[in-house]
Nucleic acid binder design. Sequence first.
DNA 1: CGGGGGGTTGATCTCCTTCAATCAACGTGG
DNA 2: CCACGTTGATTGAAGGAGATCAACCCCCCG
Lengths: 248, 248
Amino acid sequence: MDGKDFSPEIRACTDCPIKHRAVCSTCGPAEFLRLERTKFYRSFDAGQPVVWAGDRLEFVGSVVSGVATIGQAMEDGRTQMVGLLFPSDFIGRPGRAIAQYDVTAVSGLTLCCFRRSQFEQLIKDVPRIGQRLLEMTLTELDAARDWMVILGRKTAREKTASFLLAIARRHATLQHGGNCNTAVVDLPLTRELVANYLGLSLETVSRTITALKKDGIIKLEKSRSIVIPDVAALMVEAGDDVDGGVLG
Amino acid sequence: MDGKDFSPEIRACTDCPIKHRAVCSTCGPAEFLRLERTKFYRSFDAGQPVVWAGDRLEFVGSVVSGVATIGQAMEDGRTQMVGLLFPSDFIGRPGRAIAQYDVTAVSGLTLCCFRRSQFEQLIKDVPRIGQRLLEMTLTELDAARDWMVILGRKTAREKTASFLLAIARRHATLQHGGNCNTAVVDLPLTRELVANYLGLSLETVSRTITALKKDGIIKLEKSRSIVIPDVAALMVEAGDDVDGGVLG
DNA sequence: CGGGGGGTTGATCTCCTTCAATCAACGTGG
DNA sequence: CCACGTTGATTGAAGGAGATCAACCCCCCG
């Protein structure tokens, strides 16, 4: 319920950068008109909370730009990240008034929001929106389960490699168009947040990245800008099947 | 694609033990008629695979009775359980032909199934089924995220306590009707499978259960039958907020 | 009686955490 | 322009939680 209340200039849905992937991606012109009447934008500065676990959340929305984290804190201060939100990802849950997790803006963040009650009605009126949300939620569930394998069974090195690959899959600037075996990753997170995601200490993350660098698996341009000269080699480090596919 | 092909006696949906919680719980009499025309039952013995990751899965379905696990294996043999399926839980994903995870029957298992193609049509025709599936999937996603916290940040003792509580929440025979602070849990899983769920070794699970017993937090009737004399005390061990609520 | 699955317990080792110091980059105000 | 404080990152040393290897027990069943 914090965050800046001013809206960026209202944008037409047809110009929206996330229209092909977001929850609204199956909408037609008539439905966009309805969305445009009820949607509103919210922006958050880096570090600002979008909502705390346990608070009421009266809106749902899509990330238009920026990155946010979904996390949970234990009383003694331990924290675990349980999701990472990139543009087109969805925040909030229809049918639930109380947030289950902390959501925090990592970088500057802009959301395209709807009042929860209105969105619930929207789902009833426009089944394809509900279908799209189901599709997205099933994908999220698979991602969460993949993450459970990483958290439960992988070593620090495998965890770190897996993380770099996951970011690469969503964010990478691919080089060498041909085989696409080289990638450049700009980490949106600090070492501490990466550790938080991987269930490690930040020191271990730092050491592991250094080790991967020493072994020639990655190169650091800056501490947040990482070159992967051989994606397949990194996949081996991640302990995944290297089933031929590059950046899955 | 294994499993016994004979069906148990076909059951009327109105007599079905899971009709109040399963994906069909929002259906009316007319919709039940349609389900009854297309549904079929499948049974699996304890230990049998329902489907392997990577295999085609041409049906979706609900657990009618028994328990199944969702898991993933790494090439070197490490495995991590990513879900536990009890009666009324849903298996399979509309829109996906290839299973993402291994599903295995833990005890004798009976599923109420639909051909995937037919179920996809069903969702289009009957929006409330899709809505119910969305609801269930969102709940699963929250459960998966809670599990990520357990896997990433909790100690062996906290993990074990959390697991016992989770089973208690779904399975417990409550005693002392008044305050409901005592519960009896019948573990559906071996120590090995519990370890698999918690991202631990089976030895650590065994030691931790012994330790909890020595500390009076739990009592063992048999190795699979566990008495929780004071649920609140176990919640403290789990490292969760003991926000008053008993068995959430 | 033998065999096997499930469970417990012990000894050792190792990977990761913890605590701590140091460093690099960056901005700010004197 | 340079001291400084701050934030993020790296590196080192020590300790511990849990894995691993291995023995043993218990109970059921053939």
